[in-house]
Nucleic acid binder design. Structure first.
Length: 151
DNA sequence: GCCAACGTTGGC
DNA sequence: GCCAACGTTGGC
């Protein structure tokens, strides 16, 4: 089993939004970065744990835990000409963007970036490193076991 | 295939 | 709203 951190803008999809969906599952649409896409398409497996992060908001940080619920499939919004995520280069035969569905597991307490930086054990986390903008990053086993104790 | 210019991300 | 850092684009 692998562990991941996935950023979402709460104005678009928050942890509560996922929790309140009828099946508590959301398509991770809108990723338009090759590295993040490749993580979803090539490396994620059903059952992997996901740390749900709120970004581009007043209080960025960890808010919950989800699990990977599907294998990768084409991002549906790339075909929607009215969507901000429309991708003219994609065809149904050759879609450019892939994503997984993510299922709500539980909310955690809010853990801020400031707090995360206080633990030397977590200093390796990609999300804490300067200049990192990737919206999906792997979490190591060691980071995961330490994080679990914080929630 | 180099690289300058431009666009985006996201914490602050 | 600023801006550092990084990714992408496109002319050459």
């Amino acid at each position: 089993m692998k562990y991941w951190l996935m950023k979402s803008e709460p104005g678009e999809v928050s942890i509560d939004d996922v929790a309140n969906l009828p099946n508590q599952t959301v398509e991770w649409f809108g990723v338009r970065n090759y590295q993040a896409r490749n993580f979803m398409r090539d490396d994620m497996q059903i059952g992997d744990k996901v740390i749900f992060w709120h970004s581009s908001c007043k209080e960025p940080g960890i808010y919950g835990i989800c699990t990977v619920a599907t294998n990768a499939h084409p991002d549906s919004l790339q075909f929607d000409i009215n969507s901000d995520y429309y991708e003219p280069k994609s065809t149904t035969e050759k879609p450019l963007w892939w994503c997984v569905d993510v299922k709500f597991e539980k909310k955690t307490r809010y853990v801020s970036i400031k707090e995360l930086r206080e633990y030397p054990e977590l200093s390796s986390m990609k999300v804490l490193q300067k200049g990192n903008r990737l919206s999906i990053t792997p979490i190591t086993d060691a980071e995961w076991s330490y994080l679990k104790k914080l929630f």
